[in-house]
Amino acid sequence: MSDHSVVRILIAKPGLDGHDRGAKVIARALRDAGFEVIYTGLHQTPEMIVEAAIQEDVDAIGVSIHSGAHNTHIPRIIQLLRERGAGDIPVFAGGIIPEEDIPFLKEQGVLEVFLPGTPLSKIVEFVKNEIKPRHLRG
């Protein structure tokens, strides 16, 4: 594990759909707020996302999803992180996610779910308060 001091976030886009407006806007906002941001690009499998998270040594993964397959892809990402010994990398999510699915996703280990219309400032605050560099965590 490297010892970067700036929080490093992977913005991930699982699924086959092309709705990347939200992912890109969030990526820019986090970058402008001083975080290091890596964007996976579209059409990623959970395997590809977890591989990128480990390779890039990120401190958290923000998953943007609009295809309706959140209950399949997000738990899979968390499961794969655990299998690869990286279960301490927190996952947060946003996109078209019905409110009633949030309890299930949180049970699966998702740290936070942001619904459409969330101000960028709220997401930036969340990352500032909740995400610390992995190697500095107790």
């Binding site: 086959l16 759909d17 499998t45 295809s67 309706g68 397959a69 209950n71 399949t72 892809h73």
Partner: peptide
Amino acid sequence: SPLASGEVGKC
């Protein structure tokens, strides 16, 4: 295909 998992018939 594994890529289709969770997305068949969805949208």
